[in-house]
Simulated assay, not measured.
Amino acid sequence: MTIKGTIENIEYRNTAGHEKKVVTLVPDHRQKAFVEFRGRRMEDLAPYKENDEIQVAVTLEGKISKNSGIQYNNLVVQEVVSM
């Protein structure tokens, strides 16, 4: 699946040693997508900044928390391209 949009925000997160950057991507003015750059993909984000337009190829990763039972859907970036 691909998503095109404008970068609104880039946030670094480190949870229990799991590093990632979460990008708020605005495909249009009504919705937002939160996509995750993990591992070596974090380096792919280096040339981009807020207000840049990009297209990302993502995979959908669903999880259920072992502790709370809460269900999560994550959009994990596989590739990023300038627009």
Rank of each mutant, 00 (worst) to 15 (best):
Thr2Met: 14
Thr2Lys: 14
Lys4Glu: 02
Gly5Glu: 03
Thr6Lys: 05
Glu8Thr: 01
Glu8Ala: 04
Asn9Leu: 10
Asn9Ala: 09
Asn9Cys: 02
Glu11Lys: 09
Tyr12Thr: 09
Tyr12His: 11
Arg13Met: 14
Asn14Ala: 00
Ala16Met: 15
Ala16Lys: 15
Ala16Pro: 08
Gly17Phe: 10
Gly17Asn: 10
His18Leu: 12
His18Tyr: 08
Glu19Val: 07
Lys20Val: 01
Val22Pro: 06
Thr24Leu: 11
Thr24Tyr: 04
Leu25Glu: 03
Leu25Gln: 03
Leu25Ser: 03
Leu25Ile: 01
Val26Arg: 10
Val26Cys: 06
Pro27Leu: 09
Arg30Gly: 11
Arg30His: 12
Gln31Trp: 06
Lys32Met: 07
Val35Tyr: 03
Val35Phe: 03
Glu36Val: 00
Glu36Phe: 04
Phe37Arg: 02
Arg38Gln: 13
Arg40His: 03
Arg41Asn: 09
Glu43Lys: 13
Glu43Asn: 13
Asp44Met: 06
Asp44Thr: 07
Tyr48Thr: 07
Tyr48Val: 04
Glu50Met: 04
Glu50Lys: 06
Asn51Val: 02
Glu53Thr: 11
Gln55Pro: 02
Val56Ala: 04
Ala57Met: 07
Ala57Phe: 05
Val58Asn: 09
Thr59Ser: 11
Leu60Ser: 10
Lys63Tyr: 15
Lys63His: 12
Lys66Ser: 14
Lys66Tyr: 14
Ser68Gly: 05
Ser68Asn: 06
Ser68Pro: 05
Ser68Cys: 05
Gly69Arg: 11
Gly69Cys: 09
Gly69Ser: 10
Ile70Thr: 10
Gln71His: 14
Gln71Ile: 13
Tyr72Met: 13
Tyr72His: 14
Asn73Tyr: 07
Asn73Ala: 08
Asn73Thr: 14
Asn73Glu: 13
Asn74Gln: 14
Leu75Gly: 01
Val76Trp: 08
Val80Thr: 11
Val80Glu: 09
Ser82Phe: 03
Ser82Tyr: 03
Met83Trp: 08
